[in-house]
Simulated assay, not measured.
Amino acid sequence: MRQNPSFAMTDVSELRRLIDQNPWVTLVSGTDDGLVASHYAVLLDEGRDDLTIVGHVGRPDDIVHGLGRRELLVVVQGPHGYISPGWYGDTQSVPTWNFVAAHLTGVPELLSTEENLAVLDRLVARFESRMPQPRLMWQPPNDRSFIEKLEKGTVGFRLTPTRVVAKRKLSQNRSPEVVETIIAELSGDGPYADPQLAAEMRRAHDAIAAARAALEAADAGPTR
């Protein structure tokens, strides 16, 4: 992903939020037979406060990816959507696409059976928690033999990225008036309405405005 300093996303807390809210990721590896990609859910490692993630692949994807033996690229895709040139007003313009994404690269560590079971348990609990009657992994009718058989068909991993490229392209190069128009269009009921993207834009631009105000206050110095 080509980086643009104006759109760079570097705040670890924001990156953790991106991963937490968008756990369905793409795993990409370069192999002797070319590029391979798979799709799995991941979680932040609950024992760390960095960008370390944990997850699993189903066998034989571990062999296909050379899991634990070569670099793995994890693509995290956040909110994204079409931006019409008509939202810019009466000026020369073309369509674009706003998005938030992160690429995490590193050589994953393979998990032990016990660690993998814990991760699988967390994954089920994470997504079942929203159900009115959650069915947790160890809950009947599941029994230990069923769960252990399930685990043997997976390979758990932990990835602490050694390279991170993250981009938040949310109309930072547009005037505040245009940004407000775009947010209003995304929040409406038009064909490209996307409340999640609108909320992400609002969050980003509120942070930019707050940082600018703090900088101006610092430059002004103390009043007498």
Rank of each mutant, 00 (worst) to 15 (best):
A8W: 02
A204K: 12
G68E: 07
R203C: 06
D189W: 01
L111E: 00
T113F: 15
V107N: 06
V28D: 03
L215N: 02
S145G: 05
E177C: 08
E185N: 14
T162A: 13
N116A: 09
L51K: 12
N142S: 13
R135D: 02
P140K: 07
P108T: 04
H103N: 05
S84C: 09
G78Q: 03
P222L: 12
T31Q: 09
P95F: 04
Y88Q: 11
P161Q: 05
R16K: 12
V12P: 00
P222H: 09
G106V: 07
S175V: 06
E128Y: 11
T26K: 13
K152C: 02
K152M: 10
L136P: 09
R158M: 03
R212D: 13
L111T: 01
Y40C: 08
T10K: 09
W138M: 13
R70Q: 15
E114L: 11
M201H: 03
G47F: 05
V25W: 02
T181Q: 14
K169W: 00
L35K: 02
E148L: 13
A220F: 01
G68I: 00
R158I: 01
R69H: 12
I208M: 14
G86C: 03
A210P: 03
N4K: 09
V12L: 14
L117H: 07
T105M: 12
E200K: 07
L170K: 09
E109I: 04
L197T: 00
P195A: 08
V28S: 10
L215I: 06
P191D: 05
R163N: 06
P191G: 00
V12K: 06
G66Q: 05
A211T: 09
S93L: 05
A199M: 03
R17D: 14
N142I: 09
V76E: 00
G55N: 05
V64F: 07
Q139W: 04
A218W: 03
T181N: 15
N142E: 09
D50E: 05
T181S: 12
N116D: 11
S84Y: 09
T160C: 10
M137I: 11
P134D: 04
P5I: 00
V124P: 01
P95V: 01
G55K: 04
D194Y: 06
D62K: 07
P108A: 11
P141G: 08
Q172G: 05
S112H: 02
E114R: 13
Y192M: 12
P108M: 10
R212L: 15
G78R: 05
P191E: 02
V119I: 07
P95I: 04
N142H: 14
A209R: 12
F146W: 13
P141K: 09
P141S: 00
A184E: 15
L27S: 09
P23F: 05
P132G: 04
H205N: 10
N98V: 02
G47I: 01
K149W: 02
P176T: 04
F99P: 01
W24I: 08
A214C: 03
V119M: 01
G153Q: 12
L150W: 04
G30Y: 08
S145Q: 14
P132L: 10
F99E: 03
L43V: 03
Y88N: 12
I208A: 11
P176A: 11
G156Y: 03
G58Q: 14
P195E: 07
R212T: 14
S187G: 08
T181F: 03
F99W: 10
Q77W: 04
D20R: 15
G34A: 02
H56Y: 15
L170C: 04
L136D: 08
R69N: 10
A207C: 02
P60F: 04
L159I: 06
I183S: 00
S112Y: 05
